[in-house]
Design a protein around this nucleic acid. Sequence first.
DNA 1: CCTGAAAAGACGCGCCC
DNA 2: GGGCGCGTCTTTTCAGG
Lengths: 156, 156
Amino acid sequence: MSVRLDRIDRKILAELQSDAAQSLDEIAKKVGSSKTPVWNRVRKMREAGVIRQNTVLLNAEALGLEACFFVLIRTSEHEAEWQRKFLQALRVRPEVLEAHRLAGDIDYILKVQVTNARAYDEFYQALISEVKIHNVTALLSMEEIKSTTALPVGVD
Amino acid sequence: MSVRLDRIDRKILAELQSDAAQSLDEIAKKVGSSKTPVWNRVRKMREAGVIRQNTVLLNAEALGLEACFFVLIRTSEHEAEWQRKFLQALRVRPEVLEAHRLAGDIDYILKVQVTNARAYDEFYQALISEVKIHNVTALLSMEEIKSTTALPVGVD
DNA sequence: CCTGAAAAGACGCGCCC
DNA sequence: GGGCGCGTCTTTTCAGG
């Protein structure tokens, strides 16, 4: 599963991350190659799971999702059954964009995107009614300084 | 800039978010329409900025990016010049995937994706040498429970 | 606003170097 | 490994209902 990626592979990934709609010919020209080799590399990287998904990034405000919260969660429960229920609750809710289990005294962090503070409160009430949570801190984003899905591929 | 999106628009967005590589015909069939109208809707939503970007999601581990940190930052500086430098430093660094200015006693949160803890420490040292920061807490992700770029479009 | 067809173009693949 | 070229499918445009 671990693939060796050379400089050209990484350039291709950088191009795809910045605009996945451009044609193979355009990418080929930019990375200094031509269509066939680029196509073969892309196919291999898809098969190897390096490229996971083609998607589209939407404007949250245009969809009325004006509030973004980071939620820090501490729990006293650490049993398997509790965790299963908790994870399931997160996965099911589309407003939860990210959820990570953490090392340290905070157990989980969530990123939650909703229409407004009221919608967040509804989410919060629903969550704590489903699973027991010891302590919750919500951090409200005032300004998105930076937001990218582009991972550093190690080429400039 | 505020666009009205009907049920079909939202279904199209949901489809594009889940797989932007599928053809117009496929999307048309799934949303119960046909090629041309779907294409016109997509074009309008692109022009209106609802659809911001076509991109590709990569596997961070395949790129050797095995460590993800959330960084909570408190600062005592609140002058324009300090902020300008700070924001610039974040924007320039590709390992910073997200940066938000917050309401409350924590001023900023970052999401930082790096190869390992040492790489995080290098990032951290570089950052605090560039701008004065009062207090930093790094939360290390042990497990990505959920990670999606798909915003809830309000259709199931 | 949708249908249908037709032009322009990109993809995917085999074959050659 | 890279380059060429062709058949096929998709995207894009545009007529007309």
